[in-house]
Simulated assay, not measured.
Amino acid sequence: MTNETTEATPEASEVPEVLRYAAFAADPAGGNPAGVVLDAAALSAGRMLAVAAEVGYSETAFLSPTATSRAYDVRYFSPLREVPFCGHATVAAAVALAERVGPGQYVFGTLAGEVPVAVDEDPAGVLRATLTSVAPHTEPAERGDVDEALALLGWAAAELDPALPPRFAYAGVRHLVLVVADRSRLADLHYDFDGLAAYMTARDLTTLQLAWREDDRTFHVRDPFPVGGVVEDPATGAAAAAFGAYLRDLGAVPSAAVLTLHQGADMGRPGVLRVELRAGEERVRVSGTAVPIPA
């Protein structure tokens, strides 16, 4: 028997700098934490996944600069797998770039498509990022799909809002939208983690967008994310974009509207997502602030 020594490859020994930001919040204790690696050009997909698992946030964004100024190829990893697009990590990454390069226009090339991101600075010096989604679409959810999801959540069909029926919605990744009629139902979230993960995997879902309508332009939302190894996402930009398209397709909001989504309060990490629909434009804009999380 021989003893063999395996040398670590440069990539395996390299520890990339991981920035940590809370997206869709002005307080690092709120919003959704995201990891950001600003130069991941030398990292393989396997290494990115390992870094994301070590970080432990719902997603970490890995940026690779391109030959075009302010344009980046971006990949997103949860602790368990790669996802084609992530809204909160996009907002976090754009704010991190703006702090170093300056506000303005950026372009993120994602697996879901090209996502323009604009970062503006207000008079108080607060940076706000606005992403423009890929083309969204929605489709009806079959009764069997809805009943199975409700059973896994421990919810009853009678608790849903009849004016806002269940649908699948996409704006970079796919979600099942379920809107309840009572805020207390949304606040009480306990579900079958493994069962819901299997259900979502079979239907290529990234989260469930669970919502309650406070008024015509204000909603409270929650997003289970078991397929990513996370019980719940505190603020979900991709789902917010899909939800905007869902409401527009139903005719529940005007073709031009600004919506406010509150998320994370039930987890103790409150955040606010702004969703903008523009008349004559298919794509949905989602904006929010992001702040560094102290080490």
Rank of each mutant, 00 (worst) to 15 (best):
V18D: 09
V275L: 06
P136W: 00
A94F: 00
V15I: 13
E54N: 12
G102Q: 10
T66D: 09
G288Q: 15
R185P: 00
H220R: 13
Y57F: 14
Y246C: 07
V95A: 08
F219N: 10
V177Q: 11
D223G: 10
Q105M: 06
V101C: 03
A124V: 00
L176V: 03
S69H: 13
A45M: 09
P166V: 02
A92F: 02
L111V: 03
V221I: 14
S78Q: 08
E82H: 06
E142W: 13
V173W: 02
E59Y: 11
V107K: 13
L176S: 04
L259G: 07
R285K: 13
G56P: 15
E282P: 12
V115Y: 01
L164A: 09
D27S: 06
Y76W: 09
R128T: 08
Y21R: 14
E232Q: 05
E99G: 12
E99W: 00
D122R: 08
L273Q: 13
E159T: 12
R183Q: 14
T5D: 02
S133R: 12
T218R: 15
L63C: 04
H137E: 04
A157T: 12
D192G: 04
F243E: 13
V101Y: 03
L273V: 04
D27P: 06
D120E: 14
A50E: 09
P294Y: 00
L150G: 11
A198F: 01
G244T: 07
A158H: 08
T2E: 14
L250R: 11
D161C: 07
A295C: 02
A45R: 09
T6S: 01
M267V: 03
A197R: 14
R20S: 10
R167Y: 00
T130K: 11
A124Y: 04
G87V: 04
R167Q: 11
V179K: 10
D39Y: 14
R183A: 11
A265I: 06
A149T: 06
V258A: 15
A23Y: 05
Y246V: 10
T260V: 01
V15D: 00
V101M: 10
E139I: 10
P140S: 06
P162E: 12
R47S: 06
G268K: 15
D39W: 13
R143N: 04
T138Y: 01
G56F: 02
P16V: 00
G35V: 02
M1Q: 14
L259F: 07
A169K: 05
A98S: 09
Y57P: 08
V91R: 15
E276W: 00
D147K: 12
A93Y: 01
V146M: 06
P79C: 01
E54F: 00
P116S: 11
Y106A: 14
A187D: 05
S58F: 03
E159V: 03
E17M: 03
P116C: 07
E282C: 05
A8S: 05
R217M: 04
R70I: 05
P234A: 11
A25W: 05
V107R: 15
D27N: 12
E159F: 05
S69F: 04
E121D: 08
D215A: 11
R203F: 02
E54M: 02
H220E: 15
D192I: 09
G154D: 10
L208V: 02
T110E: 03
E11G: 01
P28K: 10
D266L: 05
